[in-house]
Simulated scan of single mutants.
Amino acid sequence: MRSFFTFLIAFFFTTGAFAQSGYRLGAKVDNFTLKDAQHQAVELSSFKDTPLVVVVFTSVSCPYSKLYENRLQSLSKAYSGKGAKFVYVNTNIGLEEGSQTDKAQPDRPSTQNFPYLIDEGQQLSKQFGATKAPEVFVLQNSNDGFYLRYKGAIDDNPQAENYVKERYLAGALDALLAGRSVANSERRATGCLIKRF
């Protein structure tokens, strides 16, 4: 019996240690600055005329991120004319102990039509509370800054695009662009775990 209580205490402490931090839904997002693959600084405030900004935490080392590349490109093309801007943030997922931050590959995806930023020291993924790659955060522009309206998964099937039944990110964008709130504003992302270091 005593060992059972010891287990419960350890379980609650472990669960608390891994509780997600970062922005809650509806929270105002602080301005941030990251460098792109060409070492140019990009600020969130530079999108002040954009109704929606989709921040995609990803990693060039993550197989799940590679599975979503084409889908995200298609979404970016479909929604760019409607008022949504996609921003990739390449964060280190910590595959190996002491590994350094992934560097953006020059042949991909810096050739794409959206910013690809490097999250040195996992600063921005910690700020947002991102835990997986890929994981998306939809920010809505208001008069006084950006507010978090959706976070989590892109859709319900990372392995096979043809078998996707629910398109969470597209649904969130459609709702916000139509002036509605997002019905399910948080969906658990499936992907590579972002290990903190």
Rank of each mutant, 00 (worst) to 15 (best):
S46N: 11
F47G: 01
D49A: 13
T50W: 06
T50G: 00
T50F: 04
P51H: 09
L52F: 08
V53F: 05
V53G: 00
V56H: 15
V56A: 11
V60M: 10
S61Y: 13
S61A: 15
S61R: 14
C62R: 05
P63Y: 09
P63H: 08
S65K: 02
L67C: 02
L67S: 08
Y68W: 05
Y68E: 07
E69V: 06
N70L: 09
L72H: 01
Q73F: 10
Q73M: 09
L75D: 00
K77I: 08
Y79E: 03
Y79W: 15
Y79P: 00
K82Q: 10
K82G: 04
K85N: 02
Y88Q: 10
Y88N: 11
V89H: 02
N90H: 11
I93G: 00
I93P: 02
E96T: 07
E97R: 15
E97A: 10
G98T: 09
T101V: 11
Q105N: 11
Q105P: 01
P106H: 13
R108L: 12
P109E: 12
S110I: 12
P115C: 04
Y116I: 15
L117I: 06
D119W: 04
D119T: 06
D119E: 07
D119L: 14
D119S: 13
E120C: 01
G121F: 09
Q123V: 12
Q123Y: 05
L124Q: 04
K126L: 04
Q127F: 03
Q127S: 13
T131V: 12
T131P: 01
V136S: 04
V138H: 07
V138W: 06
L139N: 07
Q140E: 15
Q140D: 05
N141H: 14
N141E: 11
N143S: 15
D144Q: 15
D144S: 09
D144R: 12
Y147E: 04
Y147L: 07
L148I: 10
K151G: 02
K151V: 00
G152M: 10
A153R: 07
D155E: 07
D155L: 06
D155G: 06
D155C: 08
P158K: 11
P158I: 13
Q159K: 12
Q159V: 12
A160Y: 12
E161C: 03
N162L: 14
N162S: 12
V164D: 02
V164S: 07
K165H: 15
E166K: 13
Y168M: 04
Y168K: 05
